[in-house]
Amino acid sequence: MKVLNIVETAYRATVEEQDDTILWLSHNLKKAGAEVSVLLRANAVNYAVEGQNASGLSFGAKKQTNPVDIVRDIKDMVAAGIPVLLVAEDASQRGLPDDRLIHGVEKIPAGDLPQLFDRFDHVWHW
């Protein structure tokens, strides 16, 4: 079963979840036997940028000792054989330079999305 998971709402509950919940789910679905690819679009294209840092939070005396690390999670997904793509126009509109993107993330023009969708049994827009 080939699944394309589209992620478009970034930084939603990442701090308390210690993950992006859909990236986490995608990795989990892959482990459960689905052939998963991830497409980052809209503000979620920013997940592909090196240097994200959500550390340093504390509330009262309670510190966030194990903060979310989206860069690590994207790299782990790529290493696990999960293709991670991003919509090229969404990245360029947001001024994301190519040399700041995580190695292994593939850019795809927006106009090619219908063709991309044809390669999957399911297209799940999260």
């Binding site: 679009r41 809209a42 927006a110 106009g111 999305l113 219908p114 969708f117 044809d118």
Partner: peptide, 13 residues
């Protein structure tokens, strides 16, 4: 524009 473009692009295929 994202969703209508996607819909139209799919139909064009």
């Amino acid at each position: 524009r994202y969703f209508p473009d996607l819909v139209k692009g799919t139909r064009e295929r």
